[in-house]
Amino acid sequence: MINKIVQTMADAMAGVPDGGIVLLGGFGHVGTPNALIDGLIEHGATDLTIVSNNAGAGREGLAKLMALGRVRKIICSYPRSAGSVVFEELYKAGKLELEICPQGTMAERMRAAGAGIPAFYTPTAAGTLLAKGKEEREIDGRIYVLERALRGAVALVEAWEADRWGNLTYRQAGRNFNPVVAAAADLTIVQAQHIRDLGDIDPEHVVTPGVYVDRVLHLPYGDPSIEGK
C-alpha cells in the first residue's frame, strides 16, 4: 500500500541533508509551510541555500532559521519587506549570500527543473543588472536571457487537503509557489490542513498529483493570522 502520510515531524524531516537547496512554498504570510520550517530548525540541517520569494519577516520561521546561522545563501525576488530585520542584519554583516531573481523567472526556473528542462530563454531582465554574467541572445529580433533551471534537494509545501498518495489541493492565494516547488525537488515534504481518504478529493480538483510528493504531515493549524491587518 502506498502511504506517504507520516506521523511525526522527525519522520517528515528524516534525511534532510546539510548543504542542500531548500525550496519554500508561500507568498507573504499565506501558504507558507511555517510548521515544516520549524521542523527543519529542530532537525538541525545547516549550510542551506533557501529559495523563497521573500527573505523572512519578524523573528520566526525563515527569519529564525537564518538567525540561527543555518542559511548560507538566499535566492529571492523581494528580500526587503516590512519586518525583514533578520535578513537586514545578516546581509549587512556579510553573513548571508543573496541572489536576486525576478519573481516570474524564479517560478519558471523551478518549473523547468520539475519538467526536465535545464535552461530557457526569457525576455525578463534582458539588458538589466540582473542579466549581468548571463548569456543574452537575440531570437526573432528580441533579446532574451538564458536562465538555468533551479532544482532543490528538498521542497517544503503547505497544502489545504492531501491523501495518502500525496494528491494535493490548495486554498485560494495559498497556492502560489507551492505546486511549483513541489515538482522541483528530490524530496517533497508537505504540511496539510486536512487529510482525506483516497478517492475523496475530486480528481478534477487535484492541483498537485501525488507523483510529486514524498511525505505528508497532518498539521491543522487553521487560518493564517489576520492580526494587525
Partner: peptide, 15 residues
C-alpha cells in the same frame, strides 16, 4: 544598492 526588491516588475514590464 545590492539588495533591491525587484519582485515581479521585470517580468511584468517585459511580458
Amino acid at each position: 544598492d545590492t539588495a533591491p526588491a525587484v519582485g515581479g516588475a521585470m517580468d511584468l514590464a517585459a511580458g
